[in-house]
Structure formats: C-alpha cells, structure tokens
C-alpha cells in the first residue's frame, strides 16, 4: 500500500504559485472562465424560472459524444459540443417541456449519449485525456481559438438577451398570459434553448459535463435565494460565477488542486451560505427554488 504522503505529495501549498498564477495559460483560463461565468449568470435566472435545470444537465451529457466525436474526426471540440447540444436543445424545445419532464426517457437518452461518447473515445488514439477533459473540464488548457469563440458566444448572448429579456421573463413566468398578450412564447422558447446549448458548450470546457450544474445553475440559485428581481439575480449570479472562477484558479495555483474542483466547491459554499443566511428572510420559499 502506498504511503499517504506519497499520494498527497502533489497537493499542498506551492511556493511558486505567483509564477504559475501569472503564466500565460492562467490568463487564458481567467478570461475563459469569466466569459463563461458572465454567460451562465445572464441565463441562470431563466434556467431556474423555466424549470430547465435538469434540461441543462441533460444537454451537457448530450454534448459528451459531440466532444469525443470531434476529437475522433479531428475538428474543434467546441464545434462538436455545439452541434450536439444545439440539436438536443432544439429537440427538447420543439417537444416542449414534456421531454424534460420525462425522467425515464431523458435518462435513457442520456445513458445512450454517454455510451456513444465512450465508443468515440475508444476509437481515437490521438488524445487519451479527451474523456477526462470533457467529463471534468480543463480550464487550464483553454486555447486562444476557444477564447475567441467564448467571447463571440457571450457577446451574442448579451445582445440577444438585451432585446428579448422582458418578453422572455414574461413568457417564462406567465406563459399562458404572455401567449394571450401576443408574446411569441414558442419562438422565445427556441431562442432560450439555443442560448442554453451555447452556454453549456462553453461551460463543459471549463468545469466539464459532470460538474456543469455548479457553474450554470448553482450561482443563479444562490442569487435567487437572496433576491427575486431578475436584473439583480443576473448581476449577483454573474458576480458569484466570476468569484468562483477567479478565486478558484488562485486557490488551484496555490495548492495545486484541480480548478474544476475548487470552482464548484466555492459555488457550493456560496449557495449553502445563501440559503442558510436568507432562509428566514423570506421564509418558505427557498426549498421550492432549489427543487
């Protein structure tokens, strides 16, 4: 049996952390992480109000074969992820909420998608760590090309939300009334799903398929525990996401920890603090927001 100190040798305070933290790859990681935190923070309120948290989780899994398939045929991972998540999002969007509500059908499709990802990965010899990167994220390996794509996605999301924000809130909160008032509820639903797919495409590359919830849903849930004003929720959840990413990268450099782990741990702690501190502030509403 290996001695504990041998196992733990790599984790611990790193005296050279200022060098690591100021390295070029760390700057790319910070920029990429912040872009994703902003995009996720802007969309998070809608994900929760539209009760699409599980759909977000499902789309991350649907993206998995897209990512491993991209590695297999030698195209950018972002492209593979985007194609699969957008296709999945449109399918869920066109089927209405019924698909997301069907746990058994969704779970079965998720298992199938994940299995497909495993197959694609077994067929490739190029990059053995591709699966690990997709499942758990690899913020430290973000390339300049990825940063440009992230920047365009986030900018596009900001522009689209600036135009549709109010009708989208109406359609999300009061779909029947919004429909009667002439708001294009279904079209907005499709716009939202595509936006969600692109946010997930980015977030998978930062924290990975399995930890995605912590960056896309949890900051918004924490913000919603504090305030119910949509603009404030967007500001707070974006802020929480940025704190998670930047502090996460700093701690990861200082203690040689996986960034994904530190990021979702901070996100979890912020969420826990929010629901505990604000639980009595507006009694009776926090449990439903998480469910």
């Amino acid at each position: 049996m290996t001695h504990p100190t041998a196992v733990l040798a790599r984790i611990g305070y790193q005296s050279n952390w200022p060098d690591v933290f100021s390295a070029g790859f760390m700057r790319s990681a910070m920029i990429g992480g912040v872009l994703v935190a902003v995009a996720a923070g802007l969309l998070g309120y809608f994900v929760i109000v539209r009760q699409h948290a599980f759909a977000a989780h499902a789309l991350a899994h649907i993206g998995f074969p897209g990512a491993t398939g991209a590695v297999l045929i030698g195209v950018p991972v972002t492209l593979g992820l985007a194609v699969f998540t957008v296709a999945g999002a449109l399918a869920i969007g066109l089927m209405g909420k019924r698909l997301a509500d069907r746990e058994i059908a969704t779970g079965t499709i998720l298992a199938f998608a994940t299995g497909l990802g495993v197959l694609f990965n077994s067929m490739t010899t190029r990059n053995a760590s591709a699966v690990t990167n997709v499942l758990f994220g690899n913020l430290l390996a973000i390339s300049t090309d990825q940063l440009v794509t992230f920047g365009l996605f986030t900018l596009g999301l900001g522009v689209v939300l600036a135009v549709v924000a109010r009708p989208l809130v109406f359609a999300s909160v009061n779909p029947e009334v919004a429909e009667a008032k002439g708001v294009p509820v279904r079209a907005l639903g499709v716009v939202f799903m595509v936006a969600l797919a692109l946010v997930i495409t980015m977030a998978v590359q930062v924290v990975g398929t399995l930890l995605l919830f912590g960056l896309v849903v949890t900051p918004a849930a924490a913000a919603l525990a504090i305030t119910a004003r949509p603009v404030m929720v967007a500001v707070l959840s974006t802020g929480f996401g940025i704190v998670c990413v930047l502090v996460g990268l700093l701690l990861a450099a200082m203690f040689n920890l996986p960034p994904s782990f530190v990021i979702v741990t901070l996100s979890f702690l912020i969420w826990l603090a929010s629901i505990l501190v604000w639980r009595d502030h507006h009694r009776g509403e926090v449990p439903t927001s998480i469910a």
Partner: peptide, 24 residues
C-alpha cells in the same frame, strides 16, 4: 400554481404592462 418563488408580486403586475416590450 405555476408561479414559484422567483418573482415578486410587483414585478408580476409590471409584466402585465411592459412584458410585451422588446429591448432594455
């Protein structure tokens, strides 16, 4: 039944007036 905790009464009433408007 369909409205959870994510909206204040005042904002909901406001949507009845401005919810169909595009832009910020």
């Amino acid at each position: 039944a369909t409205i959870g905790n994510a909206v204040r009464a005042r904002d909901l009433v406001g949507l009845g007036l401005t919810g169909g408007r595009w832009g910020i």
